[in-house]
Amino acid sequence: MILRTRNFSGETLVFVLPAILLLVLLLYLPAVLGFYYSLHELEGMVPGSYSGLSNYQAVIGAPEFIDVAKRTLVYIVGAVSLTLVAATGIALAVNTLTGPLATAVQIGVILPWAVSSVVGALMFRWVYVSDIGLFAYAIESLGLGPYRPLAGPVSGMLTLIASACWKKLGFAVIMILAGIKSIPADYHDAARADGATPWQAFREVTLPLLAGPLIICSVVLAIADLNTVELPLIVTNGGPVESTTILPLSIYSLAFSQFDFQGAITLAVFMFAVNVVLVASYVSITQRRATHA
């Protein structure tokens, strides 16, 4: 029954308005306001005179900006690709399991994603970063030398990327697994009947059909990684010497430790623009898939 209320009736308003009002006021309006604030001179927290693009010139012209942008890019590309490759492999392996075992493995894989980022960051640090941790002990007892992941910029960044991968791996596995399950079994039977090796079957059949879920998954991961403050804050605290101070952490500490709201909001608008591009591609991909399905 498609109810034909062409115009906004009072009843429709009651159904839709509370949700829309809340989303507009707390999710969409702040984005617009952020842009407005960034074009004005903030006096404390009150927007004063119009200042055009001068805030942007100040922020983008600062030498730190390029460094932060580069690090953020390295982090996002590193974390998303590592998570994607690992998750695809694990999803293919889990796909061969059946029954309660499959469910148990899926839940085991997803638990780090389910716990909060604060707790995840803390426990990751305890086992994989701390110098009295299990991982340090494993590395040192294998004779691979002293384990000091936060002693250099490269290992610091690798640690941050590993923590992001660990935290979101389970989510990626579940999403990719759903994609694998939606590939009809006949395709694989046909490939096998044609004499394809498992690797050929994966490359020629599974991978092309998995492209959609993999793209959606990488967009979702990129958004999540780009917007996580807790991991760089707690796992590496931006260090050593700022080498893991990526955009979200930079905005967060600029605003709430240094109280430079002007700088923070201008950077936040920049980050929000990247978010919008990612969200728009997510929406267009999912909508296209929904109409083709």
């Binding site: 989303l23 999710l27 702040p30 952020g34 958004i223 967060y252 909001i265 929000f272 978010n275 969200v279």
Partner: peptide
């Protein structure tokens, strides 16, 4: 439009870190 606001809201809400500063001021 309502549908779009909901669908875009899913990833946007996970990107709330970018919104926290304007949200705080507002």
């Amino acid at each position: 439009l309502v549908l779009l606001a909901v669908v875009s809201g899913i990833p946007l809400a996970s990107g709330a870190a970018a919104l926290i500063v304007p949200n705080y001021i507002y």
